[in-house]
Every structure is written in C-alpha cells, then in structure tokens.
Simulated scan of single mutants.
Amino acid sequence: MAPTDRLQQVREHLVGGAPSNKDPTRVDGHVILITGGAQGIGKAAADLLARQGAKIAINDVDAAKAKAAADELQAAGCDAFFLAGDLLDEAFPERLVNAVVARFGRINCLINNAGFCVDSAVHKMTDAKFDIIMKIHNYTPFRMIRALSSHWMDPANLDMPKSIINISSTSGLHGAMGQINYSTAKAGIIGMTKTIAAEWGRYNVRCNAVAYGWIDTRITRPPDGSETVALAGQEIVTGIPLSAKKWRDVSDIPLQRPGTTSDAAGVLLFLASPLASYVTGTCVECTGGRYL
C-alpha cells in the first residue's frame, strides 16, 4: 500500500468516510473482546464502548455475571455476546477467540483486563502465589494475543482497525510493598506491550497498556470474603486490607480521590478509538496524578 493510500485510509478511519464532524470517539461496528468483562473496570468498559457503537464480547470466569452483563447490554439495544471460562486453562484463549470470530466474523480490539491479586510480603510469598499471578497477568495475555495471530495476519484483514490494550498498574511502574508477584507481572506486561507493538505494526496492529493507580473496585476494597481465588485447594480472599493506610491516603494524589471505573473506562475508549490511531507501544498512566 502506497503511503498516500495509507494516509487516506487513516483519514477515512477517523471520519468513517463521513463529514469531518463525525465523532472520533465512536467505534461503530468494532468488535471488542474484553476479558474479565463482567465486573469492575471490564464491565464499565463494556458499557461505555457499547454506547459508542461497539459490538461487545465478554469473557469472565463467573458465568452468571458474564451472562447478566451481556443481557444488560442486549436489553439496551447493543450487540453483545458472552463466553464464560477460566483463562488459566491454557487451551481456553484460543477457544475464546475462535468463538468470538464465529459469532461476529472478526475481532478489532482485545482488552486484556482479567486479573486478581494474591498479596504477601516477599519472605512469606509462596511459589504457588507467585506462579498464579504470573499466569493470569502474563501468560494469559500472551496466549490471548497469540490466539489472534492467524486471524489478524490474514491478508484479508490487514487493513481493518486492530488494537490490543493490556492492563498494567502503578505497582508495575514503581513497585508496591506486599506485591512482589503482582508488581513483577505488571512490569512484565509493559515489555510485552512494546514487543507486540514492534512486531505487529506491519499488520496494522496497535498495542498499548494502561497503568492504573487506585481505582475503586472490588479488588482494591478491603477483603470481605466476596471475592476469592482457588489456589492449591484453598480459597484465597482478595482485596487490599485497611491496614495499608499509606496506599489509601489520597494526600499524594493531586486529584484527591481514588478513580472510578468510569474514569478507568474512558482511557480504554480513547485507546480503542480512532483518536488513538497513531498511538502504539506506550503505557498511559491513569492515576489521578499519584507518583508525579
């Protein structure tokens, strides 16, 4: 494709071939697959992207919540699909991608959002706790991306908009006490993001990450037993205890508050939309200014 043709394609992508007042935040007809999309940031992103015209594919390990999220979108007139399943099953990512392609005919954007924390001080961290966090935050995004390769490298799909958004954290950028496993994994996802951006740019794929700070979700609230992770035959309660007073202090956040899931979803819309058509290989920080 000649450079002038490519520039024209970008212009058409930005305005949809319509007059220049076309809303560039619209993602009309884009098929967006969100892992962990039934609650928290994932659900907020699904709701926002659907309102902006996307067709939404939701994955979550909780089948009831995944179905409820998809039903809610369908009731609002949006095109939504769900497939529940455990992403820690190494064969599941490929089944998930194939199911979404079978349902919608394509995938335009993958948001690797699924994840959880199992915290412990370094000297108390077990191999099992370390390993499961690496699997959900590194192996799973890698397998999801790899599963897209044949679909996105198909010459017939070369020119369609394609993007990946990986979820990182300020723990990955700055480290965090009690999170040696999570911090290591979230630092690793940034390296993965940059590598995919470098390798797959030739296939018209953008790949970016978002490093979130304190976003008010179930995973960042004090443990109450409602969220657990099965680990080595045990149910591990997730959440950040109230004793983490320094982390919960908003005095070092210029905006003086934790973020909402709506705040978090807005960044994902930007990266998925034509507004970010020349943004790739970067990590956007959504922190309220913490760590300036």
Rank of each mutant, 00 (worst) to 15 (best):
1 M>C: 14
5 D>S: 11
5 D>F: 06
11 R>L: 12
15 V>W: 14
15 V>I: 15
16 G>C: 12
19 P>F: 11
23 D>L: 11
24 P>E: 10
25 T>V: 07
25 T>K: 06
31 V>D: 04
36 G>Y: 08
39 Q>W: 01
40 G>Q: 03
41 I>N: 03
42 G>V: 10
44 A>H: 09
48 L>S: 05
48 L>V: 06
49 L>G: 07
49 L>F: 09
54 A>E: 09
54 A>C: 12
60 D>V: 08
64 A>D: 13
65 K>V: 06
65 K>P: 04
65 K>G: 06
66 A>E: 07
69 A>V: 08
73 L>D: 09
75 A>V: 00
78 C>L: 03
79 D>I: 13
83 L>N: 05
84 A>P: 10
84 A>H: 09
86 D>C: 15
87 L>W: 15
90 E>C: 04
91 A>R: 14
91 A>W: 08
93 P>R: 07
94 E>L: 11
94 E>Q: 14
94 E>R: 14
94 E>S: 13
95 R>L: 14
100 V>S: 04
101 V>N: 02
102 A>P: 00
102 A>D: 11
111 I>T: 03
112 N>C: 14
113 N>G: 03
114 A>N: 07
119 D>C: 00
120 S>E: 12
125 M>V: 03
127 D>N: 13
136 I>N: 02
137 H>S: 13
138 N>M: 15
143 R>L: 12
145 I>T: 07
148 L>S: 01
159 D>E: 13
162 K>L: 06
165 I>S: 02
166 N>H: 12
169 S>M: 07
169 S>I: 08
171 S>W: 11
172 G>K: 01
172 G>N: 01
172 G>S: 03
173 L>D: 00
173 L>Q: 05
175 G>P: 10
177 M>D: 13
180 I>A: 15
181 N>T: 06
182 Y>R: 11
183 S>H: 02
184 T>L: 10
186 K>Y: 01
187 A>Q: 01
190 I>Q: 09
196 I>E: 04
199 E>S: 07
200 W>T: 05
208 N>T: 00
212 Y>P: 02
213 G>T: 03
213 G>E: 00
217 T>L: 03
217 T>P: 04
218 R>I: 09
221 R>V: 00
224 D>Y: 00
226 S>Q: 09
227 E>Y: 02
236 I>Y: 10
237 V>T: 10
244 A>M: 15
245 K>Y: 05
250 V>T: 14
253 I>T: 11
253 I>W: 09
254 P>A: 15
256 Q>L: 14
257 R>L: 12
259 G>P: 10
260 T>W: 11
264 A>K: 07
268 L>P: 01
270 F>M: 10
274 P>H: 13
275 L>I: 01
276 A>P: 11
277 S>V: 09
278 Y>R: 11
285 E>L: 00
285 E>Q: 03
289 G>D: 08
292 L>P: 00
